[in-house]
């Protein structure tokens, strides 16, 4: 319970940073998607169920304050959390490369989905512009943010896990 509360607080902190600080570090209108990092990270740290939990909350928050239909980001974030939990199930917890691969893949899929929902459905494809000016830069920027935030978040997560008396992901797997 205490651990879940910590996750909720972390989601809020990431959200506030996303809305207040990210606008200042945007490069030609593109900024990192910080909220997307959370389901990917927590899926890796704590298994698929953890990823789903964080994904649905972060996604609803992103939807409520973003411009898209309620449920779109939640749907995608849940997928990323589950994907991260499942694909990285047998990856060492000390690993750095695989979660980063999954971060950039998730960001890429997320931006593609946004492009699809907001533009392709309205018959404005313009793939060249969107890939080179929106989707790829945002994915790479998100990856950069992920690299910067991965170790702080992991360190904090281990502390909180120890404080709440939770084991690693293997423990979680037995629970669920």
């Amino acid at each position: 319970m205490k651990y879940r509360l910590y996750q909720i607080v972390l989601i809020f902190v990431f959200f506030i940073v996303q809305t207040v600080f990210v606008p200042f570090i945007r490069v030609s209108g593109n900024g990192p998607e910080l909220l997307l990092l959370l389901p990917v990270f927590f899926g890796f740290f704590g298994g698929p169920v953890n990823g789903i939990f964080v994904g649905v909350l972060a996604g609803i928050l992103a939807d409520v304050y973003g411009g898209t239909l309620l449920g779109t980001s939640a749907f995608l974030f849940v997928c990323f959390g589950y994907m991260s939990g499942k694909l990285l199930e047998n990856v060492e917890q000390e690993e750095f490369f695989f979660p980063m691969m999954l971060t950039v893949l998730s960001a890429f899929l997320y931006e593609c989905a946004m492009w699809f929902v907001l533009f392709v459905l309205h018959n404005r494809i313009d793939a060249g512009f969107f890939f080179t000016r929106k989707i790829l830069p945002i994915s790479l920027y998100t990856l950069a943010a992920g690299i910067a935030l991965y170790f702080p978040v992991r360190c904090l997560d281990r502390k909180m896990r120890a404080a709440a008396g939770r084991g690693g992901k293997r423990n979680e797997k037995h629970l669920s």
Partner: peptide, 14 residues
């Protein structure tokens, strides 16, 4: 102005 849209795809602000 206290916040901008939380995603990269619109220019709404709060």
């Amino acid at each position: 102005v206290i916040g901008s849209g939380s995603d990269n795809w619109d220019m709404e602000f709060t």
